[in-house]
Design a protein around this nucleic acid. Structure first.
Lengths: 331, 331
DNA sequence: TTGAAAGCGCTAACAG
DNA sequence: CTGTTAGCGCTTTCAA
């Protein structure tokens, strides 16, 4: 990649300014020079150096995405939406797998800032003060996806987790279930954790149903933890007829536990998931779950990132229940 | 991000050269100046501009990853491995979701070349001549992952697809199955398609079993196509006792078809998958599948990318069968 | 329609 | 130990 703009200029017998104009589709040259220069470009295989360009126009056409775990349907589907819009608008996306690790995250943030990314998408993770302070200092658009932090100045795109959990629980109740357990995400998580727990509890209370701590088991949103949480719930002898899970993966974990115990689904236990990733569709029985418009969430977030940092709106996307075969109707 | 090296220099009352030395940990300054400068850096919130740096040292510390579909466990798990090593070695990774689209791919390739990425990982897709020519012109390390092209000069990391398919089929045969179908990927795919078909056929022939075209249905490696392919196979009245799928997702599709038809697994049909992603573990019954060391593949590829373009070795990683519950032993 | 020249922010000799 | 200076490859006035 040694060929530079001056190589082209020399080869075509013009100045670098002219080559630049032609490359950038600016006016100011005769058709003949244009042809001549374009021929040289092809012949030499000239590729403008984005760094040099970026240095002068202060543009990198690159954004950064921080996510807790690249492996996982939720992240993947989100990434798909992000990538789609990013490419359409001419941006490249740098992915940063934080592994939920603070140091790692800060290290990425540092890199992204040095690389002068033009925006950052912060996904599915709680925005700590440390992150917030750093991000603010960057003076670039940031949008929180599937998370939010009212104390920060950043806009966000997510569903209403409380309402969503309420509605998932309500769905179970409406189908005649009264003894319902919750497989929650991490309790400390202020976004995908607590609000979903509260939504569950509220729905249960509104229906005068039991929902003390005994009905709740905690996981980390992933499969294995779903198995463990279901085992835990099962060991408490609550005679549950249904379980609400805070993620599809944990719901599948619960199913796996039941299968292993030789129980029938949904006859012996109804399960509702959360997310509606491909996992839900592939499960057996196919998982009834709370649908989040994941890919759309990624698209909207990317749109916001591009449309400038101005609007600090908290966008709430619609959710709904996708009915499949994992909930038995007791009515 | 307006603060530059000269702001720091001015603030600290030294020259930019000194600041540069300190920032880059080069020798040549007294402890006092160092402290002074570092204080200024913190106070002003100076972040070295990676573009400016890159322009002079011709380094971007960035690599590009081209993959057909970010959504999908295989890609995700690979990405995890790639990202892990990349971060450890100080590289950022730009993801490019080609969607198996030629134009889109070329457009990404162009962008990556202008951004002067230092290496490219080309994943799971057939390397066409067009791509190969372009990639060669870039003069940077390229490694093919889960694909390969002997006609190209690029090294690759993958499993032996023929041998793997042979061994998956053989596993079924060893468990007493004689009427076995294949849910193949796209026939034209010279890597994940044909070799797996050939491996299947060879295993069947070696055992004197029927394996004509009627035993094979084609999908596109994804879930829905697995359902369709299984339906197709089923409609041919072959009395199959087992099916070999060229991806876990298609295997799950086949399972879903069977469940929908009210058949029992693995009693009515044994199924073996390919990949051993988390999907296989979460399936019901848990899927016995041909294990590819996916994350490791990503790590190795990234290692090769960094260790220079010198070795054009075709690395073949070990595969094995992960036994779970989807294959019935007929012996 | 064209070119010369001044930077963009930084590194790397080369002098002191 | 420290500063000056010449680029890295490109865009963008400003003149011609």
């Amino acid at each position: 990649m040694a060929v530079t703009i001056s190589d082209v200029a020399r080869h075509a017998g013009v100045s670098i300014a002219t080559v630049s104009r032609i490359v950038n589709n600016l006016p100011g040259y005769s058709p003949e020079t244009k042809d001549k220069v374009e021929a040289s470009i092809v012949e030499l295989g000239y590729k403008p150096n984005a760094m040099a360009r970026g240095l002068v126009n202060r543009k990198t056409n690159t954004i950064g995405v921080l996510l807790p775990c690249v492996t996982g349907r939720f992240s993947s589907e989100l990434l798909r939406g992000i990538e789609k819009i990013a490419h359409a608008k001419g941006y490249s996306v740098i992915i940063c797998n934080t592994d939920m690790n603070g140091e790692r995250t800060m290290s990425y943030l540092k890199t992204l800032s040095e690389k002068r990314v033009e925006g950052i998408l912060f996904i599915s993770e709680w925005l700590t003060d440390e992150y917030a302070v750093f991000l603010e200092s960057l003076q670039i658009p940031v949008v929180l996806v599937a998370t939010s932090n009212p104390a920060s100045p950043f806009p966000s795109v997510k569903v209403d987790d409380f309402a969503a959990a309420y509605s998932a629980t309500r769905y179970l109740i409406d189908h005649g279930h009264t003894r319902i357990g919750l497989i929650s995400g991490t309790e400390k998580d202020p976004i995908a954790g607590r609000p979903r727990i509260e939504g569950f509890k509220r729905a249960m209370k509104d229906a005068d149903l039991r929902c003390d701590q005994a009905c709740i088991a905690f996981g980390d949103f992933h499969f294995e933890s779903g198995i463990a949480a279901m085992a835990e719930l099962d060991s408490r002898g609550l005679e549950l007829s249904a379980v609400c899970a805070a993620s599809d993966e944990m719901a599948l974990g619960a199913m796996t536990y039941m299968h292993r115990m030789g129980r029938k689904l949904p006859e012996d236990l109804s399960i509702i998931g959360f997310d509606d990733t491909l996992d839900a569709l592939m499960a057996y029985p196919a998982l009834t779950t709370l649908h989040q418009p994941i890919e759309l969430m990624g698209e909207r977030a990317m749109d916001m990132l591009c449309s400038g940092t101005a609007d600090d709106r908290q966008i709430i996307l619609e959710h709904h229940i996708t009915e499949r075969d994992s909930v038995k109707d007791l009515r």
